[in-house]
Design a protein around this nucleic acid. Sequence first.
DNA 1: CGTAAACTTGAACGCACTCAAATGGTGTGG
DNA 2: CCACACCATTTGAGTGCGTTCAAGTTTACG
Lengths: 246, 246
Amino acid sequence: MALNEIMRPALAASHFRAACSNCDLRELCLPIDLTDDEMQRLEMLSHHKSNFPAGGYLYRSGDHFKSLYAIRSGSFKTRILHDDGREQVTGFLMAGEIIGLDAISTDTHTCEAVAMEASEVCELPFAKLEALSREIPSLQRHLYKIMSHEIVRDQGIMLLLGSMRAEERLAAFLLNLSQRNAVHGMPPTRFTLRMSRLEIGSYLGMKLETVSRTLSHFQEEGLIRVKARAIEILALSRLREVMEKP
Amino acid sequence: MALNEIMRPALAASHFRAACSNCDLRELCLPIDLTDDEMQRLEMLSHHKSNFPAGGYLYRSGDHFKSLYAIRSGSFKTRILHDDGREQVTGFLMAGEIIGLDAISTDTHTCEAVAMEASEVCELPFAKLEALSREIPSLQRHLYKIMSHEIVRDQGIMLLLGSMRAEERLAAFLLNLSQRNAVHGMPPTRFTLRMSRLEIGSYLGMKLETVSRTLSHFQEEGLIRVKARAIEILALSRLREVMEKP
DNA sequence: CGTAAACTTGAACGCACTCAAATGGTGTGG
DNA sequence: CCACACCATTTGAGTGCGTTCAAGTTTACG
């Protein structure tokens, strides 16, 4: 497994933008190939929720499962909460990605999704999606692939959390963001973090101070430039080396 | 999220034992409700591979994806390999569980599955399974649920790796094994580990020495009794407390 | 423009790692 | 059935990475 595939690979963000009344759902998370007629049927079952506020909950842990959501614009974080107060950020999701897959298993959301900025989502009622996927084989296959893709992504993060050091984790994280930002038309070496050091730390299994220190260290090494949440990658290839050296 | 749900919950092992010519597939991983006729059709598409040898590969990383596998007896570990030699065990799978879900995404296996003892599996050709699931709604729903369940499990392990200490991780691991063993008719407080300290360490993100030391420590505390790979849990509730105290 | 939150940096600590050696367990061939 | 070899496991001692605690500084936002 190539190291640049460890975290959510570029295709996660680039393909699949499924049907929804106001979204181009033709590229929802993975490539989907539907006829115009099929596309229209997919669009008919979706609702559009616009102007989702920053900090707002898309759903909470324990909520009854009804729909998947396709992020049309903005970004979300998902997290699971512990009884004892600890929390773990399990993902940062960007436009074009699908959110809510965890809830299918038990018909209850096991994590919660919070908007990190003003965002728009398409609601995809799962019962309808399921029924339609029975009639459109390529849609069914697509749903299976999206879910499998999420499994691969999560296992990549298990590798990261289980066997990488702090520097390697952060390098992997930055490179992953770089890839995913590039997909949205932004330059791969300049982007703005949507999340705090605390959230990055929770995601990567380290403390916020360690995140901050490691970013500073990368800057001293000339690998990146950090200015608050603005990141500029100065040496992509050397950053990859950081990640690949045990 | 309750702490005893963090790792693969009991239902993962208890329910779903899907159709396969020689297996009772009626309970494959999650409850499945099919008519006799539907069951027969599910069984018709499956092959039975018996006598899978210990240490043998069910599939390797990079193999072309063709089938899912239902474990009929025995157990497997799945792991992802790094370019630089590091490996991460991503799961220990027991009878009744489904293996190979990661490969649907790209039609290529991203991890490898190795038998930890002599095992039997049912092969479920995915193309046929997919087609049949279009005709049997409850089978389709079942497949979605199994995949979602794997996502929930993986995210539980992310929580474990990202925010728990060594003692807590190992306590969670033992309690999870206890649950899953109970499901197979074995007493919940006495079971045999199928995996080495090295493999446990890889799975839990710690070194084998730390696994060993922590087991010894639990024994000194009177929580468990360890004799090589034989484990006896002496104080289930106190072991849960270990896991729940930050 | 002022306040609170986010971030950076420093210093000391501690958990888990590394290195190393001894012990125990397992399987195989004599 | 035992002896040997090999691998798995345990245990010890010392180290280091990341944490904790504690300022000080910058940024975001009303």
